[in-house]
């Protein structure tokens, strides 16, 4: 790591996968800016733990990513406060499930707004800052549901497949400016998002996975760290699947 810490923005970092990513990147020496609506207890504890240890640093930036029109100012203010942004991890998402035929339109709209529209607009403003610097890394958190089917997740799947297409095309668009764009596709993880999964469904996912278990949030956080690191400098426009072999 360089003497000056690299700033990485992680969205949805107050819990679940986002919090695990924020913790991992902080331990790796990055200066992590955790964007979330509210400061959860685990995030508060993680920030306190970082202050005790001499790793990178972890900062909380309160923001509701559903407020797409306020994103330009968010990025402007973060750049003013923290300086150049080296990395962006688009992790924040909602996981509404249910049969599409009876899913309320407002829920569908919320899925598209938070999982697709918001990260695309956020990326627009962050990538501009990276373009001005001539360097940067973007990691989009997609899902295996973006390329495999799962009943009850049609709208969610659409938003995640959208992020895969976004990843590949943006990688082409900004590659020659020294910006890498990749995605990770986690399988089912034990987080709040998958609490709706019944025990039987969970068992079935485990039975079908090559490794006979679920991947966990730390496995995915490791993949994100790799894609942000110097070792991944020649990797762009790709999707790294972390699903314990579920889709093998």
């Amino acid at each position: 790591m360089n003497d000056k810490p690299r700033n990485v923005l992680v969205t949805g970092a107050s819990r679940g996968l986002g919090l695990a990513i924020a913790r991992r990147l902080t331990a790796a020496g990055y200066r992590v800016i955790a964007v979330a609506r509210s400061k959860s207890k685990p995030l508060t504890e993680a920030i306190a733990a970082v202050e005790r240890d001499a790793h990178g640093s972890l900062h909380f930036a309160p923001f509701d990513l559903g407020k797409v029109e306020a994103i330009p100012d968010l990025v402007k203010n973060l750049r003013k406060e923290f300086g150049p942004l080296y990395g962006l991890v688009n992790n924040a998402a909602v996981g509404h499930d249910g049969a599409l035929a009876v899913m309320h339109n407002s829920r569908i709209e919320e899925l598209v707004r938070l999982n697709t529209l918001s990260p695309i607009v956020l990326t627009k403003y962050v990538v501009r800052a990276m373009m001005a610097e001539g360097a940067g890394r973007i990691v989009n958190v997609a899902s295996i549901i973006g390329f495999t089917g799962y009943s009850g997740l049609a709208a969610y799947a659409a938003t995640k497949a959208a992020m895969l297409g976004f990843t590949r095309s943006l990688a082409r668009e900004v590659g020659r400016l020294g910006i890498n764009v990749n995605a990770v596709a986690p399988g089912f993880l034990d987080t709040e998002m998958t609490h709706g999964l019944t025990g039987e469904q969970r068992e079935r996912v485990i039975r079908r996975s090559a490794l006979r278990r679920l991947a966990d949030v730390d496995d995915v956080a490791n993949a994100v760290e790799f894609l942000l690191g110097d070792q991944a400098r020649s990797i762009s426009g790709t999707v790294l699947t972390v699903d314990a072999g579920t889709t093998a």
Binding site: R128, M131, A132, E173, V174, R176, L177
Partner: peptide, 8 residues
């Protein structure tokens, strides 16, 4: 792309 960098 150059114009995008210019705007940034």
């Amino acid at each position: 792309l150059g114009l995008a960098v210019l705007v940034a």
